[in-house]
Write a protein that binds this DNA or RNA. Structure first.
Lengths: 191, 191
DNA sequence: TCCAATTCCTAGCGCTGCTAGATATGAGAG
DNA sequence: CTCTCATATCTAGCAGCGCTAGGAATTGGA
């Protein structure tokens, strides 16, 4: 039964092509430009084919988000690994987080502001999301003190997320970005 | 020229009716349910009338947001006024901010995550937004120390915003909300 | 009473996500 | 080698969206 194997492989490749096309288009022109018709044209199949792979547009965005979690986790891991000492680590990891969000705004949105049908604060969180969160947790562990580590991590994360989103939607003066980040980092750094 | 005065008054009333209808509908069913057709039906006029008042749907959402800034500012002012001492003020103002966002999620979204064509970090910020921001600034002034007050305020705001948005989109465990808020408040409280 | 200006509505455009039903393709049986 | 049937895929279309052109109705002033 080699033919069936080939067809399954081709199907998987096509599914990946959809995700990649959505990702690239979103990065280049934003999620509003990612329509099912354009995606279909991109992969050179008709629209309904998309729906044989994904339940709908939201599911495609969720798939892009899942890929994003892997990238973000990797970025955070390498930032902490290459930093000099626990105090510097907070600054480096924060910078890596912000850089990721700024360089891939559309993906960041899919991960953290849109596409809500992803399992987040539940049992079966996407593995890479857990990896990224764990990396944040290790980074702020020295300052957790008597507070619960998970709680402190979530709060630090929320600070980063707030800075990133308010910045990018024009709610914060672009010029003081570095200083704000420094303030946040200082509040979550071991002293 | 009393007739012209009457017509201008009626026009203003109709404009307010549009904003109120949009606000109520968004609060009840979310912004996706706020369509120009439903709005038109609500105010008992035809669709194109909306466009004689507002440039488009975004402008209507912006008008709702502007009303929201006034409410939020008032809530923050009264929270700080009625709190016992500067340390408690940070907690009270933070609680008031979060309560506003939780009780009026759709309005909060219009203010801070959607409708970007509002003037924010520029010269002519809406007055009530400036009021709210000033209130936050006064609250965190005791902890600003040698950091720039505006920068600290923006960072604190970002922390609140991050907690609120991640919470409501299901990215954070609902149960630890109070503890996270306490961690953030602690980091921005005078000691 | 008539005219002109303003106000308002009907109808429709191009787009969206999504789907039902028809058509093409290809593997297995005889 | 041919026929059959299941699977894969496409064409066409639905209902809804934001928005607008052009005509009808209403109103105020001469």
């Amino acid at each position: 039964m080699s033919t069936q194997a080939r067809r399954e492989r081709e199907r998987a490749e096509r599914e990946q092509a959809i995700i990649t096309a959505a990702r690239d288009l979103a990065l280049a022109e934003g999620w509003d430009a990612v329509t099912t018709r354009r995606l279909a044209a991109e992969i050179e199949y008709s629209q309904p084919v998309l729906y044989s792979h994904f339940k709908g547009k939201d599911a495609i965005m969720a798939a892009v988000a899942v890929e994003g979690f892997a990238e973000l986790a990797t970025a955070l891991v390498s930032a902490r690994a290459s930093s000099a000492g626990p105090r510097q680590a907070v600054a480096d990891v924060a910078a890596a987080y912000v850089a990721f969000a700024q360089q891939r705004p559309a993906i960041y949105d899919a991960m953290f502001t849109l596409a809500v049908d992803l399992p987040f604060a539940t049992q079966d969180v996407p593995t890479d999301l857990a990896r990224g969160f764990a990396e944040l947790a290790e980074t702020v562990r020295p300052v957790a003190a008597d507070d619960d580590l998970e709680t402190v991590t979530e709060t630090f994360w929320a600070g980063l997320h707030g800075l990133v989103t308010l910045m990018r939607s024009g709610r914060l003066r672009r010029v003081d970005h570095e200083r704000r980040l420094a303030v946040l980092v200082d509040r979550f750094s071991p002293r």
